[in-house]
Simulated scan of single mutants.
Amino acid sequence: MRVMTYNIKTGGYDGSRGTRLEAIADVIANEVPDVVALQELRGDSGPWLAKRVGMRMVRARSSWGQPVAVLTNPDWTVLAAGSVARPFHHAAARVVVATLGGPLTVISAHLHPHWGWRRMHEARWLVNAVGNARLALVLGDLNTLDPWTDHHDRLRALPPPYRVRHLRWRPPGREHTDRDVGPVGRVDTRAIAALDAAGMVDVFRAVGEGPPETAPTALGGAEFSGMRLDYLFATPALAEHVRSCRILRTPTADRASDHYPVVADIDI
């Protein structure tokens, strides 16, 4: 089974410049995935992509941000589907499919882009949504850095308005300075730490191949400085069966979005 998570940047639409939907569809179709977690849907981009790549879609709408979706192989039996009923800034979609190994829960999420404390709470809601599921995946653009890496250089490279998104909040009068970028403990990694503390396994950290950074692509973006923001987390029982994980860097992916997709292969 092959799974993918992909932030497609504003639904693939670039205003008067047209769309990147064909390129996005090509990136997905070339990998022949069984499950795709999509973030930043807009308009009819979700239904269009699902039809184009021949998959079924479960979409979670957003009250403040952008919808997300889970696409599944049409040959699979869907046991349950819907949104995670929490006030996410964007949204989270939850699908349970039947596999030979048992029911598999898949959650596509897109965490808050600006505030680390909000991302932490959203990550805890994802843990609650997984519940007691033995086989579960949480995939998506989690918009946060991991607690195992020294992020000093990449944060120093960001303009201050974007750098502060990844630093712990301080009271008025105690503004962040460049010194706050050095020690890893001052970087806000609480969302990833919450998933790790719940026993979820960072799939790329466990079996990943190649460089871990998922943004930016050749499309660029001032808010990125060579960062891993897109993740796959698996329950321990599922993580045992993950065979590979990689960041998909191809010429098509370079122009399809500002994020690279993450792909994993699982024997289940």
Rank of each mutant, 00 (worst) to 15 (best):
residue 62 S to D: 10
residue 75 D to E: 15
residue 54 G to C: 07
residue 74 P to H: 02
residue 59 R to G: 00
residue 246 R to T: 13
residue 137 L to T: 12
residue 217 T to K: 11
residue 153 D to L: 10
residue 187 V to R: 13
residue 19 T to E: 07
residue 170 R to S: 10
residue 104 L to Y: 05
residue 71 L to I: 02
residue 243 R to Y: 01
residue 110 H to K: 07
residue 145 L to I: 04
residue 223 E to K: 11
residue 161 P to L: 05
residue 203 V to K: 07
residue 95 V to N: 11
residue 23 A to M: 13
residue 260 Y to C: 00
residue 151 H to D: 00
residue 105 T to N: 00
residue 94 R to L: 13
residue 85 A to H: 05
residue 85 A to T: 12
residue 215 A to P: 06
residue 84 V to C: 04
residue 128 N to V: 09
residue 88 F to E: 15
residue 79 L to E: 06
residue 176 H to F: 06
residue 19 T to Q: 09
residue 220 G to R: 11
residue 237 A to V: 05
residue 189 T to H: 12
residue 218 A to C: 02
residue 91 A to W: 12
residue 207 V to D: 09
residue 174 R to A: 15
residue 146 D to S: 13
residue 1 M to S: 13
residue 266 I to F: 11
residue 18 G to Q: 06
residue 150 D to G: 03
residue 235 T to P: 05
residue 69 A to S: 15
residue 91 A to H: 07
residue 76 W to G: 02
residue 98 A to T: 03
residue 199 G to E: 09
residue 181 V to I: 13
residue 92 A to H: 09
residue 196 D to P: 03
residue 117 W to N: 04
residue 221 G to K: 02
residue 73 N to C: 08
residue 249 R to Q: 10
residue 58 V to W: 05
residue 33 P to Q: 00
residue 36 V to C: 03
residue 126 L to W: 14
residue 140 G to K: 08
residue 116 G to Q: 11
residue 262 V to S: 06
residue 62 S to I: 01
residue 205 R to Y: 04
residue 65 G to L: 05
residue 245 C to D: 09
residue 252 T to C: 04
residue 204 F to Q: 02
residue 27 V to K: 00
residue 131 G to P: 09
residue 63 S to V: 07
residue 55 M to Y: 01
residue 197 A to V: 09
residue 231 Y to S: 00
residue 129 A to H: 01
residue 151 H to F: 09
residue 56 R to H: 02
residue 177 T to S: 15
residue 131 G to E: 08
residue 46 G to V: 02
residue 29 A to M: 06
residue 155 L to F: 13
residue 103 P to F: 03
residue 169 W to S: 12
residue 205 R to I: 00
residue 63 S to K: 12
residue 41 L to I: 14
residue 67 P to H: 03
residue 144 T to H: 00
residue 247 I to T: 12
residue 107 I to P: 00
residue 57 M to Q: 15
residue 189 T to D: 14
residue 166 H to N: 14
residue 177 T to L: 04
residue 126 L to D: 10
residue 18 G to W: 05
residue 32 V to H: 13
residue 241 H to K: 13
residue 218 A to G: 05
residue 203 V to R: 06
residue 255 R to A: 06
residue 208 G to N: 11
residue 134 R to G: 08
residue 84 V to R: 04
residue 28 I to K: 01
residue 23 A to V: 01
residue 34 D to C: 01
residue 81 A to S: 13
residue 167 L to G: 07
residue 195 L to V: 12
residue 65 G to E: 10
residue 259 H to S: 11
residue 41 L to R: 15
residue 37 A to C: 15
residue 119 R to W: 08
residue 69 A to K: 06
residue 210 G to S: 14
residue 35 V to R: 00
residue 82 G to C: 02
residue 59 R to M: 13
residue 71 L to T: 01
